[in-house]
Design a protein around this nucleic acid. Structure first.
Length: 267
DNA sequence: CTGAGGGAC
DNA sequence: GTCCCTCAG
């Protein structure tokens, strides 16, 4: 094991320890965060949804998604990550369930069993730990994509943690994420769930009017995260999705053309 | 944190 | 299928 990797894991364990301690001393605050979580539901599913290339948009309490039936997974999952969603409990992981809200029939979790691929969350469970209900809702088969364990637990996990860091630092961000569902893709299971060759994430900080996008090959990397920053436009060309179409056009054009990560702290 | 799998019931 | 346990990056 490389030293850098070892330090990363130790840092993660430290973070978990701190959260556990905060939870221990702040138990009386949990009820308040539950109410706060409940109050953002309608807001989070009406703001800043991308366009759908498949015509099947599904809204859950904590996130929305656009399902691609041919690929048996979402082309995007979108949600607001508020500062108040962060910290707090680590719940017991439930079993994945087929998302009955997907009219064409979401994939079964059995496709992933012994496939060699993780059931990789698109909206991470770690972003929805403010209530058990919100947490469990991320364990729907419409919210997962086949990912290698090295990638999922490696640089993708690092990016997800960075997004939580930004949500805390910038008082909330909007997140859109998914695999790139183009070309001939490997499939797993009887339902032929496609294995993306690339995954993307688009982050919008509304308060400070800045946007950043990441495009990553489906493999782990030791490179720094900022090496994977791309203009939002390039992800739109690749996927056919229009991100944040509700923004005023001039602002949208300006933000989406940039591949600069000025204003985004990578510390 | 991100996940997997085995075995008893 | 559910629950409990061990394990890895």
């Amino acid at each position: 094991m490389r030293k850098r990797k070892l330090y990363g894991i130790l840092a993660i364990l430290l973070v978990i320890g701190v959260y556990g301690y905060e939870h221990f001393i702040n138990e009386k605050d949990v009820a308040e965060s539950v109410r706060e979580g409940a109050s953002v539901k309608s807001e989070s599913r009406t703001f800043y949804l991308p366009t759908s290339t498949t015509g099947q948009v599904v809204h859950h309490n904590g996130y929305s998604l656009s399902y691609s039936e041919p690929h048996e997974q979402a082309e995007w999952v979108a949600y607001e990550l508020k500062k108040s969603h962060l910290s707090k409990s680590n719940f017991k992981r439930p079993y994945f369930e087929v998302d009955l809200a997907v009219k064409t029939g979401a994939a079964s979790w059995r496709n992933y069993k012994n496939s060699g691929y993780d059931r990789g969350h698109l909206c991470p469970a770690g972003d929805k730990s403010y209530t058990k209900e919100a947490y469990d809702e991320t364990f729907l088969t419409s919210n997962i994509s086949p990912q290698t364990h090295d990638f999922n637990s490696g640089i993708w996990n690092t990016l997800e943690q960075k997004v939580r860091y930004w949500a805390r630092k910038y008082d909330g961000v909007f997140v859109v994420t998914g695999g790139v569902l183009k070309g001939d893709l490997e499939t797993i299971g009887n339902e032929r769930v496609a294995v993306p060759n690339q995954f993307y994430k688009v982050i919008y900080d509304a308060e400070h009017e800045k946007m950043i996008a990441f495009l990553m090959p489906h493999r782990d990397s030791e490179e720094p995260l900022y090496n994977f920053v791309v203009p939002v436009d390039s992800v739109e060309v690749l996927t056919g999705i229009d991100f944040f179409p509700e923004l005023e056009d001039a602002l949208e054009d300006k933000l989406e053309a940039s591949s600069s990560y000025k204003g985004w702290s990578f510390n």
